[in-house]
C-alpha cells in the first residue's frame, strides 16, 4: 500500500495552488524515495517538476512503485477542504483506482475523508540535463512576484538581463515601457531578504509574463526564489518546499524572429 502523512496540510495546499494554473492533470510517481511529478502545461511551453522526499513526511510507506494520474483541478478542490493545521494523509492500495485524502483536525475531533478517482494518462517524460547556468539569481520570492505583476501591465513578455552590475527586468508595450533593476545586496539582516547574483557570463532572455505569473503562485512556499539562466535554454525558477523538497518550473524563452 501507499500512505503518506504530513502533520500540516498547509504545505500540500500551497503546492496545489502553485501548480493548478499550469496543470489540469499530472502523474504522481510514488516510490520509497518520495513523490515526484513532472508535467508540461497544455501548450508545452513550460514544465513543472515537483519533488517531495519521503523523509520529509511524518509517515511514508510505499510498498511498490505507483504511478497515479491525478486530476489537479479536483485535487485542488479537495485540498481546499482541509484547514491548514489539519493533518493530511494520502492513501492508496496497490493497483489503485482511487486515492483517499484524510484530513484530521489537531484536536482529532474532526475526521474527513475524500476519495478521488485516478485517471489513466499518457506519460511523456522529458530528460532534463544537468546544466551549469551562466547566471543564478537568488532573490526574495515576494519581490519577484511583485516585479512580474508590475511589469505585466506593460507588455506580454519580460526580459531578464543579468550582468555583474545586477539583474534588470524590463517590459515594453504599446503604452510605454518599464524596467526594474536590482543590485546584489551588500549586507542584510535577514538572509531571505538578500539578492544574490552568481554570474559567469551575462545573459539576456525574454519570457512570457503569463507563465511567470503562474510560477509566482509558489511564493507562499518559500521566502526566496532561485532563477537560473543561460543563453538560449529554458529558465529554471525554483522554490524550496521547507525541508521536504522543491518545485522547479522550466520556461522556454522567446526566440527572436
Amino acid at each position: 500500500m501507499f500512505e503518506a502523512r504530513l502533520a500540516q496540510s498547509a504545505i500540500l495546499k500551497k503546492v496545489l495552488e502553485a501548480v493548478k494554473d499550469l496543470l489540469s492533470e499530472a502523474t504522481f510517481e510514488c516510490s520509497d524515495s518520495g513523490i515526484m511529478v513532472q508535467a508540461m502545461d497544455n501548450a508545452h511551453v513550460s514544465l513543472v517538476s515537483l519533488n517531495l522526499r519521503s523523509d520529509g513526511f511524518d509517515k511514508f510507506r510505499c510498498d511498490r512503485n505507483l504511478s497515479m494520474g491525478m486530476n489537479i483541478t479536483t485535487m485542488t478542490k479537495i485540498l481546499r477542504c482541509a484547514s491548514s493545521e489539519d493533518t493530511v494523509t494520502l492513501r492508496a492500495w496497490d493497483n489503485p483506482d482511487n486515492i483517499i485524502f484524510i484530513f484530521e483536525s489537531p484536536s482529532k475531533e474532526k475526521l474527513a475523508e475524500y476519495e478521488m478517482k485516478l485517471i489513466n494518462m499518457d506519460q511523456e517524460h522529458l530528460g532534463i540535463p544537468e546544466t551549469m547556468y551562466s547566471c543564478v539569481v537568488k532573490m526574495p520570492s515576494a519581490e519577484f512576484a511583485r516585479i512580474c505583476k508590475d511589469l505585466s501591465q506593460f507588455g506580454e513578455a519580460i526580459t531578464i538581463a543579468c550582468s555583474k552590475e545586477g539583474v534588470k527586468f524590463s517590459a515594453a508595450g504599446d503604452y510605454g515601457n518599464a524596467n526594474i533593476k536590482l543590485a546584489q545586496t551588500a549586507e542584510v539582516d535577514k538572509e531571505e531578504e538578500a539578492v544574490c547574483i552568481d554570474m559567469q557570463e551575462p545573459v539576456k532572455l525574454t519570457f512570457a509574463c503569463r507563465y511567470l505569473n503562474s510560477f509566482v503562485k509558489a511564493t507562499p512556499l518559500c521566502a526566496q526564489v532561485k532563477l537560473s539562466m543561460s543563453a538560449d535554454v529554458p529558465l529554471v525558477c525554483e522554490y524550496s518546499i521547507g525541508e521536504i523538497g522543491h518545485i522547479r518550473y522550466y520556461l522556454a524563452p522567446k526566440i527572436d524572429d
Binding site: 508540461m40 501548450a43 508545452h44 511551453v45 513550460s46 514544465l47 511523456e124 517524460h125 522529458l126 530528460g127 532534463i128 540535463p129 507588455g155 506580454e156 513578455a157 515594453a172 525574454t206 512570457a208 535554454v233 529554458p234 522550466y250 520556461l251 522556454a252 524563452p253 522567446k254 526566440i255 527572436d256 524572429d257
Partner: peptide
C-alpha cells in the same frame, strides 16, 4: 517580442 519556444524542443523525450 519574438516567437514562443516549446519546452519539449529543449529537452529530450525519454
Amino acid at each position: 517580442t519574438g516567437t514562443q519556444g516549446r519546452i519539449d524542443s529543449f529537452f529530450k523525450i525519454l
